[in-house]
């Protein structure tokens, strides 16, 4: 016999995994487009710390001279990205799953403790229901990033027809830079997300595919959902 906990609803799993290849296509085609005017860099004055992107990076990935291809892909997959994202947010709202996802007041403080724990600087991490405090912040942030990528993208796709949006974001050049920054942030999120999944282990990873997580004996002793529910009560009262 196995004790399992139903963790990720079916809709969340589908929407999560549909998003993965779409997002990959959006970032890839975005890179093909960005190359044609790859002007951003980190640095000050004439000093460049990091150029986005170095020539050999482009060449290794065979990026140069594929602007037209990038655009036609980007403006196709953008619909899938927007529609899938819409359903994801709608599902979070309707199913009340957002309660597990949005940061709470205490999440901000607890996220540090989670970070210290993950860096092996602290023995225990704060009790959690589905997601820990750092996950709540990260997963909410990535939804906001998605929304911002969509809005900044629309602003630079139709800067005349959607001039109000373009202006709101600081004009065409700024909106393009913002679109780029949100994409970089998203890629960084992706890296950390994958690393965390690797550290979290198989049981946690397979839950986003099967939906359930196996409850191990010592898990139960340390933090059963029941005890969490109780601590929840005491803190909210």
């Amino acid at each position: 016999m196995k004790k399992i906990i139903r963790k990720h609803p079916l809709a969340i799993r589908w929407l999560h995994w549909i998003n993965f290849p779409i997002m990959a296509m959006m970032v890839w085609s975005g890179l093909l487009i960005y190359w044609a005017n790859g002007v951003y860099k980190l640095g000050w004055g004439d000093q460049t710390v990091l150029k986005f992107f170095p020539k050999n990076f482009y060449e290794a990935l065979n990026v140069p001279f594929r602007l037209a291809e990038g655009m036609s892909m980007h403006f196709f997959f953008m619909w899938l990205f927007a529609i899938n994202g819409f359903f994801y947010v709608a599902y979070l709202i309707v199913s009340k799953e957002w309660k597990y996802l949005l940061p709470e007041k205490r999440s901000w403080k607890e996220a540090w403790q989670v970070l210290l724990h993950d860096l092996r600087l602290r023995k225990t991490s704060p009790p959690q229901i589905k997601y820990n405090a750092a996950q709540r912040i990260a997963y909410t942030a990535v939804i906001l990033m998605g929304i911002m990528m969509l809005l900044t993208g629309l602003a630079i796709y139709k800067p005349v027809q959607l001039n109000w949006l373009c202006k709101l974001l600081g004009g065409y050049a700024w909106a393009r830079a913002e679109h780029f920054i949100f994409t970089i942030l998203f890629c960084l999120f992706f890296l950390v997300h994958v690393l965390q999944v690797i550290f979290a282990g198989w049981n946690k990873f397979q839950a986003i595919i099967t939906g359930f997580e196996v409850v191990k004996k010592n898990d139960l002793e340390e933090s059963t959902p029941i005890t969490i529910a109780e601590t929840d009560k005491t803190t909210t009262e």
């Binding site: 399992i4 939906g211 359930f212 959902p225």
Partner: peptide, 27 residues
Amino acid sequence: MKTTTISNSKFRRKSIVAFLVFLGCFV
């Protein structure tokens, strides 16, 4: 989130189905 108890064979079957669908979709 609820905890439930299921038999080992049911657990295995559920896992395999989920992974097959998952891989199928990626292919």
